[in-house]
Design a protein around this nucleic acid. Structure first.
Lengths: 240, 240
DNA sequence: TGGAAAATGCTTGTATACAATTCCGAGGGA
DNA sequence: TCCCTCGGAATTGTATACAAGCATTTTCCA
């Protein structure tokens, strides 16, 4: 019962001991990461995950490898997996990449946007508004992903989705005010309805710049962050 | 002696039976795919690969999963892996994505280009010139990858690398004249030395447009392509 | 008491065994 | 002759056993 903290956390990912498919496990871990329930630096022991999801380490390893290729998890030989802590340099790269991609894709998005798309985006923005802050982070990512999917370029959408997920990690490490991101997405929906490309692109550039400006790169950086602080109080012996 | 063709092909990937690391296996398969020695539609039985590389199916499955996430290999449940045959729609997406990304990155490339970069690019272009056509395909991909790495954005470089690899698959399926791509890369190097961004960007757009224009989307598409034709003549018994 | 070396335990890496599914062909009937 | 059904062979999916490496602690000596 040494790493009880982690175990409690991971146990919360699965409702009990029912077996899940690897896609479902990936989904659960992805959401936990994007919603900041698993913070950068958190270790992900294969046994604990296998127990929590009621499967063997085989599937866990497959999921971890996928998350590692998407840069959400860092895999070190013989040292296991942990949630990636993006470096300041990587963070800047991600934002530059997002500004470039989202700005360029918006041109295509505006020409192809249908009323159904607008409705779907409105639904997500509404959920975002009513959700807890944790879920709001995930829904915000979903909003951007859904918006850029309108452009109809699967190759770029997938690359962009990964960048959006990684943004959540960046905010987890360098975000200053947890209140942040009052999520002005409804304003963007209004703009989209007008179809004025220049204004929309300008809004998006500003949106991304605002998020980046709210970060504080002077803090720690790469070292294992607030893991102990977060889960230390779970460390009751609970001998048996 | 059912799939002897495949077996001979796969055996050619490894020199004998020595054990290799998973990275080396990935590299070997990647090169075989990009160099068109493994054509779209070719099946990749785990046992055959495991035997060829002298490892167990565990590592093979890991490598195949990675290739699948990069869209070079298609994995279907209970049906195994085969080299991906991009659809015409996917092909167009890839080219649009490349035009967008490479065009945008060139601006950064031009400002950061060092003499060392130019020298490295020249070396690759030279090798490309002297290599066999198979290797030239791989070196051409390497040239583009190396060029875009100059921009110094790892996130975008990695996404772009995947698009470049997939381009090789697209050419394998839809390429008309195998002579194609006299590879005008030396001309680009001359242009890069001048530092005239507009001309460089225009050249690149034209380069990509030329490649795309040389494709023929009216042909087959997804069905297993010329696999039998390629490897049928290898089918001697070679007993003992 | 402080530090270094060794040993032990825990985690990961790889291979293999077994179960599940698909594919292909043979056989029978209409 | 065509089609449907029913095995059998081959291949993939999952779990588990065992080997290997790292981390921590314990112990011993200065």
């Amino acid at each position: 019962m040494n790493d009880t903290g982690q175990f409690h956390l991971l146990a919360g990912l699965a409702t009990g001991r029912e077996t899940r498919s690897d896609d479902a496990i990936y989904q659960a871990l992805w959401e936990a990461i994007v919603e900041h329930r698993l913070s950068p630096g958190a270790r992900l022991p294969e046994d604990a995950l296998a127990g929590a999801f009621g499967v063997s380490r085989t599937m866990i390893r497959r999921v971890l490898q996928r998350l590692a290729l998407e840069q959400l998890v860092t895999l070190r030989a013989h040292r296991g997996a942990q949630i990636t802590s993006p470096t300041p340099s990587e963070a800047r790269d991600v934002f530059r990449a997002r500004r470039l991609l989202e700005g360029a894709l918006l041109a295509e998005v505006v020409t192809r946007l249908t009323p159904e798309d607008l409705k779907a985006l409105t639904t997500i923005a509404d959920q975002e508004h009513h959700a807890s802050r944790e879920q709001a982070i995930r829904l915000s990512a979903r909003f951007h992903t859904r918006l850029m999917a309108v452009a109809g370029n699967a190759s770029l959408s997938e690359a962009l989705s990964q960048l959006i997920s990684r943004t959540s990690l960046i905010i987890a490490v360098y975000g200053r005010h947890r209140a942040g991101c009052p999520c002005e997405h409804p304003a963007l929906i209004d703009l989209l309805a007008t179809g004025e490309l220049a204004a929309i692109q300008h809004w998006m550039q500003q949106h991304l710049a605002d998020i980046e400006a709210s970060l504080d790169f002077t803090a720690s950086g790469d070292a294992l962050p607030d893991f102990e602080h977060l889960f230390g109080h779970h460390r009751e012996p609970s001998a048996s």
